[in-house]
Computed example of a mutant assay.
Amino acid sequence: MKISDMHHVSLAVNDVEEAKHFYGTLLEFPELKRPDFDFPGAWYQVGNSQLHLIQNKKAETLRSENKIDSRDGHFAIRVDDYNKTVEFLQGKGIEIVQKPHSKSGFAQIFCMDPSNNLIEFNVDQMDLNGKE
């Protein structure tokens, strides 16, 4: 098997309209045309990959706790500038947890969507001040 890229990540959400506000309006992810499935959802472009949201209130993947814990399942998005990402998220009123000196080697910023799905934004720790 030869892997070329990650195509998409699918997340269960409680309320697709609330999730669309978070991902489309607050995070400003570009929304993609989605096939006319028989269930609510939304698709977004995230770099070279896609994020697929599926409204499913009974999904086993939904977390009941609304506390940001970086050890919980999450997906990560590489960003160009750590500090600008912190400013952007805080400017949108999104609660974040910062881990600029994580043992992972990534400077990490964690946040949560309205359905308690965790998202990590990161840069290589050597790029903490962003790319010049």
Rank of each mutant, 00 (worst) to 15 (best):
E65L: 11
D80G: 15
P114Y: 06
I77G: 01
F106S: 09
L89K: 02
Q108S: 12
L32A: 10
H74C: 12
E120T: 03
A42Y: 02
A107H: 08
G47I: 07
D5P: 01
N116Q: 12
K131I: 15
G105K: 09
L89G: 00
A42Q: 06
L11G: 02
N129S: 14
K84V: 00
Y23N: 03
P30C: 11
N129Y: 10
N56K: 07
I3S: 10
R71H: 05
F37C: 04
M126W: 14
F106K: 13
F29I: 13
H7W: 03
N117S: 09
F29S: 08
Q45F: 03
N116D: 00
A59L: 08
F39W: 10
L32G: 09
A12T: 11
G24Y: 09
N66D: 11
T61Y: 04
S49I: 08
Q90A: 07
K92W: 09
K99Y: 11
S104I: 01
F29L: 14
D72Q: 10
N117L: 06
T25N: 11
I3C: 05
T25A: 12
K103R: 12
L118S: 04
R34C: 01
R34E: 04
G91Q: 04
F75S: 05
D113R: 04
A12N: 02
M126A: 13
E132H: 12
I119F: 02
Q108Y: 07
